[in-house]
Write a protein that binds this DNA or RNA. Sequence first.
DNA 1: CCATCAATTCGACGGAAGTAGAAATATCGA
DNA 2: TCGATATTTCTACTTCCGTCGAATTGATGG
Lengths: 123, 123
Amino acid sequence: MDQNQTITALGALAQDTRLALFRLLVTAGPAGLSAGTIAERLGVAPSSLSFHLQQLLHAGLVTQRRLSRQLIYAAEYGAMTELIGYLTENCCGRGISCAPACNPAETLAEGEHDEAVSRSRHG
Amino acid sequence: MDQNQTITALGALAQDTRLALFRLLVTAGPAGLSAGTIAERLGVAPSSLSFHLQQLLHAGLVTQRRLSRQLIYAAEYGAMTELIGYLTENCCGRGISCAPACNPAETLAEGEHDEAVSRSRHG
DNA sequence: CCATCAATTCGACGGAAGTAGAAATATCGA
DNA sequence: TCGATATTTCTACTTCCGTCGAATTGATGG
């Protein structure tokens, strides 16, 4: 997952209706829910829901399949895994004291040093 | 971390400059970087950078401290931990087969059943 | 206090996001 | 084929986002 794909996924989740929608599908499990059911549950107009579903679909966060007349949407758990992996990969395994973000159990002392400004003069 | 706070954090990260900025700070470690250094590294106008820094600051994803004339920004690892926790809390511990998102190592068979549409009529 | 440097705030602009009614498309049952 | 149902696409509108130059605020050193 590259930066653009990550931004697409984050942007897809960074919206009231879509985050609620994604969480609804996550809790619904692999069986998923039909578009109509989702619209009813979230209280949004069908056209608006369709717009948001396209965003999540394009971001790869949900899957779509047809069941008779209805379109069933389900959470794509693998995408969530990759998204989290991308957010944490910059943090783990570099010898930097950011372990809490990746392994909350392991807390370690934060040793601050004066590297913060050292590059202002070196360009 | 509630839904609004999560959306703020996701929205803060769902942008080219800001995601690059956040990753830069994450790799920079707790020492952080000055605003000027960041602007130089990312190649954005100081005023634009300031705008983005406010977004990340408001989202609680970075911290700000003064060092002489410069303002030093550093990644707030705890916020990242909470954000990931919020995204995964809907997935784990509900007896639903979404373990891959939380424990990628443990893959399990996806047993689909016809619960998808069952609520269309009852809703 | 004054000159200087670092960073932010202000103002204006173009473009994209979110909303919802109306029309179009696709599937099913008879 | 025809009518009914489910969902999407189209269209228009409003609001928010991202950008950058210019002006302002805040801190340092003499």
